[in-house]
Amino acid sequence: MKENVQEILQKANNLQYNFHIAIKVSKLLDDDNASINDLSKLIEADQALTVKLLKHCNSAEYGFSKRVTTVKDAIARIGFKILKTMIFTIVSKSSFNQEIKGYGLEKGDLWRNSISCAVYSRYLAKLIDYNDPDQAFTAGLLRDIGKLILHEYVRKEYDEIERLVNKENITFSEAEEKIIGLNHCQLGALVADKWNFPQILIDTIKYHHNPEKAEQDECEDMDLLRIVHFADYLTVMLGYGIGKDSMLQEIDMDCVESLGPPLCNENMESLISDIVNLNPEIEHLISNLE
């Protein structure tokens, strides 16, 4: 039985909303007149975020010899782009680091999966000379935000979804849409829109399993979508926090290969070998944010 889409969207209103500061910081960074003073005031208004930001800046990952003690100092040292990804990462944790029962994800699985997809997205972006690898990190991090809400419905309808996947030979997302009324990508995009996420992130959330559809809909940044589509696949294939649905999706390699020679067929196994070498970075990031 199809769930009422309006009812599901209503649920989204009850989701703990942690992203308002990240969105404000993101918008401020897009404003050419923004200053370090404006940004630090905004961040310092949230004490918990400030503490986590400073702790993360002082981790071995950044290797600053002198301790970072103020938000202003942190911004000056890490720069605007890293600041944006860091804030999104910090505020995402409380939402993503929980049990997501409908998809068979234990506590920590979706968080690990999201961080992995973020790190792999940034790596692929650098590999193909995409102009904003940090944007790719954030897009990879947030792509599955719809699962935070939809998992309760997937849990109830899981047997029916699985039956439809096998019977009609369709992907898990397609079956979600047929049974529940919308899939985790569509729901994620609606929620992200409601929360005023930048359009580029709404698009990667909406189309990360279906870049071909994004092409038809003339999305602004197809390369970013292709990067996240492929990073999602690599994350699943390498087993980082995968759920019951993860492998019942689709990978469009024609779309991936259109990103250029580094991602062509003959380089794939070598690429996977290099990607696996990023795993210590993922582990560090997760433990730094404990």
Partner: peptide
């Protein structure tokens, strides 16, 4: 040695499992 359910295109990556 699992693999993704549905594959579009023709790449060696798809049958790594």
């Amino acid at each position: 040695g699992a693999q993704m359910f549905n594959l579009k295109g023709d790449s060696s990556i798809m049958n790594i499992g």
